[in-house]
């Protein structure tokens, strides 16, 4: 890893950083963990990106049967596409429509569908987002550049427990005839959290 990051300045390494490195060293010495396993997790964590979620969304836009399955049994549906969810969390997909817009937050910690989106952005874990998304979602959306049309309800989802939520954004207009890969290009991470809509075709 160190070859990919510049060395940290002394002042930047916090007490907690030092202590976790000490813990790592001790656990390796005591054979509680192995460096191979740690490296394996680091590599696999880095391989997960929102492109996985985007493929799921694009498939749902193209395949009505898949879409219905995704909304009712998300684990099985994404399993069909080869995505293995972690054994101890479930996945639920909520669909944006002309009438309702979903926004996902975790007010208690930072629950997030990492199996399909990779690690959450820093803002998702910030106090400001966790505090504001539930009480003023429209102001938050405006800050992200999304002004909802009149008459659209906002449904905020606070993922407090074992279920991770993915938003199925609306398919942008004028995308008839596009294939799965081209559609997936329009699906941003933010659109699957619900702070944005999918990109329109001319803005790719």
């Amino acid at each position: 890893m160190s070859d990919e990051h510049p060395p940290l300045l002394h002042a930047e390494r916090s007490r907690r950083a030092t202590r976790i490195l000490a813990i790592r060293q001790l656990l390796v010495e005591k054979d509680v963990v192995t460096t191979d396993e740690l490296d394996d997790i680091i590599v696999r964590a880095r391989a997960r990106t929102p492109a996985d979620g985007a493929k799921v969304v694009a498939r749902a836009w193209l395949d009505e049967e898949f879409r219905e399955r995704l909304l009712t049994d998300a684990r099985a549906a994404v399993g069909d596409l080869g995505y293995q969810l972690s054994h101890d969390t479930e996945l639920a997909v909520v669909e944006n429509t002309a009438d309702v817009h979903h926004l996902v937050v975790c007010t208690l910690c930072s629950c997030y569908p990492t199996s399909l989106l990779g690690p959450p952005p820093d803002w998702y874990k910030s106090f400001a987002y966790r505090q504001r998304a539930v009480i003023e979602p429209r102001a938050v959306l405006r800050e992200f550049g999304l002004e909802l049309a009149d008459g659209v309800r906002v449904r905020v989802v606070d993922s407090t427990a074992d279920v991770r939520y993915l938003v199925l954004p609306r398919r942008p207009a004028g995308t008839q005839g596009l294939g799965e890969d081209a559609l997936a290009e329009l699906v941003t991470r933010d659109s699957m959290i619900g702070v944005a809509e999918a990109r329109s075709r001319d803005r790719v």
């Binding site: 990051h5 656990l27 740690l38 997790i41 820093d122 910030s126 400001a128």
Partner: peptide, 20 residues
């Protein structure tokens, strides 16, 4: 104030923490 949308580059010890 607004939500800070900047992302920081993960440091090595953060990867280690996550992997542990």
């Amino acid at each position: 104030g607004p939500i800070d949308r900047s992302d920081h580059q993960w440091e090595d010890w953060e990867h280690v923490t996550n992997a542990l």
